[in-house]
């Protein structure tokens, strides 16, 4: 059963991620009063990226980008296999580090700035991710995902603060406005985008696919808050994932980019207040 879920994740995550991306563009366009591209546009983009001739600025960028992808797939697989969530989140940080390396290896001014900003984003998210695992442990008594989802009541009952905190940093993880620092545009050119500046063709396609894996994995964590031993809780979980996704898209469209110190301060403050207090209460009532 675990193996099936893992294989499904590996095969379907890029598809679901791509569809969500298409939906994102369509919804955003409607919010801005435009028609928007077709839902399948991300897949057309990807196939075009793969058809491009291989050009690169150095010989390690591709290798680091691929490592980013594979580590993310492993981290996501661990989540869907029901393994230890803390280990899984540790691995997410390791994967992200490879992306930072890939961007830094270019030694170009724009991707360097992007890499530095991505590092700050990582630092902003890390405490919430670790506290989230702690929250699940306090609420369900285990770090194992398989045990977290087999309780009688959903984890959300015990940890609403954690959900708020997690949704907050999901915006950072998805690199969406107001937290899109690391991939922010330069001089209104669509082509120059932070740490992806020097990535093109296949390399850029790999980065995009990894982002789809990441998106599905983050939504998987959102689902953890709702899923329990009953079958209908999974429907609620999926529904809420869609709501969470819509919230992220909506915020993306109505907010302007913040500076890094606001991002870091904001994330840490929310982590302390929402996650910290919620965890403290859980620990006291235990």
């Amino acid at each position: 059963m675990d193996a099936v879920r893992v294989i499904l994740y590996i095969l379907l995550a890029p598809v679901i991620g791509g569809l969500l991306d298409g939906l994102d563009r369509r919804i955003s366009a409607r919010m801005q009063g435009r028609q928007g591209p077709p839902i399948l546009q991300p897949f057309y983009d990807l196939s075009k990226l793969f058809s491009k001739e291989m050009i690169a600025v150095n010989n390690v960028q591709m290798l680091l980008n691929l490592s980013y992808l594979v580590f993310f797939v492993i981290a996501g697989s661990m989540l869907f296999a029901g393994a230890d969530i803390l280990m899984c989140l540790f691995l997410v940080s390791t994967a992200d580090m490879f992306l930072v390396m890939a961007a830094s290896s270019d030694s170009s001014p724009y991707s360097s700035i992007g890499a530095n900003r991505e590092m700050v984003q990582l630092m902003a998210c890390e405490p919430m991710l670790l506290l989230l695992a702690v929250g699940f442990y306090l609420a369900t008594g285990s770090f194992q995902v398989s045990e977290i989802v087999s309780g009688d009541i959903s984890a959300i009952a015990a940890m609403p603060g954690f959900l708020i905190g997690f949704l907050f940093i999901t915006g950072v993880k998805l690199r969406k406005s107001p937290f899109d620092l690391s991939t922010s545009h330069h001089a209104h050119q669509e082509v120059v985008k932070g740490l992806t500046t020097e990535m093109s063709g296949t390399t850029f396609a790999i980065m995009t696919i990894t982002e789809y894996y990441e998106m599905v994995m983050l939504l998987g964590i959102v689902a953890l808050f709702f899923a329990n031993s009953t079958w209908w809780s999974w429907i609620i979980a999926v529904l809420f994932c869609l709501i969470a996704f819509f919230i992220e898209v909506f915020i993306d469209n109505v907010s302007a980019r913040v500076k890094w110190d606001k991002l870091l301060g904001g994330c840490w403050a929310v982590t302390l207040v929402a996650g910290g207090l919620n965890g403290l209460i859980l620990m006291i009532i235990q």
Binding site: M54, I55, V57, S107, S108, Y110
Partner: peptide, 8 residues
Amino acid sequence: RQYVPIYM
């Protein structure tokens, strides 16, 4: 692959 200079 073809190596290209970085964007500056």
